[in-house]
């Protein structure tokens, strides 16, 4: 056993560095993410829909190999039900802040909160 005090100090320094880095990441993420405005849904990297966080709706999302039931209400979005094997997307719970996301790996599904856009922006008016 060659371990001495000096080597112990180096270990502590590195662990503290890693801890600080982690906390800094969390702090940055927290600082730079306000309340979200829209929910973007992607399957396998392709955008399949974009919805306002403030319009109540329940969506049946077709992922690769299964479906997830997405609920949007009062500025929050969450997966209510899913037929994926792990059910992690349900456990993720409610997301509301910009940059937060729910990921269902088995279905290659990403539900992501993005910034506030005026929900009424349109490309063209149907009359």
């Amino acid at each position: 056993m060659m371990k001495n005090k000096k080597s112990l100090r180096r270990d502590i320094v590195l662990i503290l560095c890693l801890l600080t880095a982690g906390l800094l990441i969390c702090l940055t993420v927290w600082l730079f993410s306000g309340k979200g405005g829209t929910v973007v849904v992607r399957v396998g990297g392709t955008v399949v829909g974009e919805y306002s966080l403030y319009e109540t709706r329940t969506l049946t999302l077709q992922g690769t190999g299964g479906t997830n039931l997405l609920r949007i209400q009062n500025g929050q979005a969450w997966i209510e039900d899913a037929d994926c094997p792990d059910g992690l997307c349900i456990r993720t719970g409610k997301i509301s802040r910009q940059g937060q996301s729910i990921i269902c790996l088995p279905h290659q599904l990403v539900v992501e909160v993005q910034g506030v856009t005026s929900g009424n922006e349109i490309d063209i008016n149907v009359k």
Binding site: V29, S33, R42, G45, R97, G99, S101, I103, V110, Q114
Partner: peptide, 8 residues
Amino acid sequence: MNTAAIGW
């Protein structure tokens, strides 16, 4: 997933 927003 083609997502860069993985901060959280």
